[in-house]
Design a binder for these strands. Structure first.
Length: 124
DNA sequence: ATGCTGACTATGT
DNA sequence: TACATAGCCAGCA
């Protein structure tokens, strides 16, 4: 067992676990990869990901619940949003995702308040 | 080695 | 809520 697998490898492994229709933040991915405080590194790692890698990089967003702006034109951002919407992830009018509803909880152990509370007349 | 960059964040105003 | 600031730290020229 390699005591220290490359950081990127760990990062990709975590991202690969994010289920379809859910999103995780950079900081969250870093923490689960055993690299707390390396949120920026997660971004760097995803940026260096070759196309067709199969890693669901689009499911990683910033702590504010939005698709992180890249430098230059916003082409990649638009594509990322498109992919997420294709998985039923919803964006509000401000272009943000409700982490309480779509945020990934690996352990699902505690808070787990996924779907909106159904109230009289409420629809899914 | 050194300095700058960036797909980040928490905190204060 | 929005913006500014300050930590953050690996990658790269």
């Amino acid at each position: 067992m390699s005591p220290r697998p490359d950081p990127y490898r760990r990062i990709y492994a975590v991202v690969a676990r994010i289920p379809r229709g859910r999103v995780a933040t950079y900081g969250q991915v870093a923490a689960y990869a055993g690299l707390p405080g390396h949120a920026r590194q997660v971004g760097t790692a995803l940026a260096s990901l070759p196309e067709g890698s199969g890693v669901p990089w689009h499911r990683v967003i910033n702590a504010r619940g939005e698709v992180s702006p890249r430098g230059g034109l916003g082409l990649e951002e638009g594509f990322q949003r498109h992919l997420l919407e294709g998985e039923a992830v919803r964006f509000d009018a401000r272009g943000r995702i409700d982490l309480d509803r779509f945020g990934w909880e690996p352990l699902g152990a505690r808070p787990r308040r996924r779907a909106p509370v159904r109230r009289r007349g409420a629809r899914l």
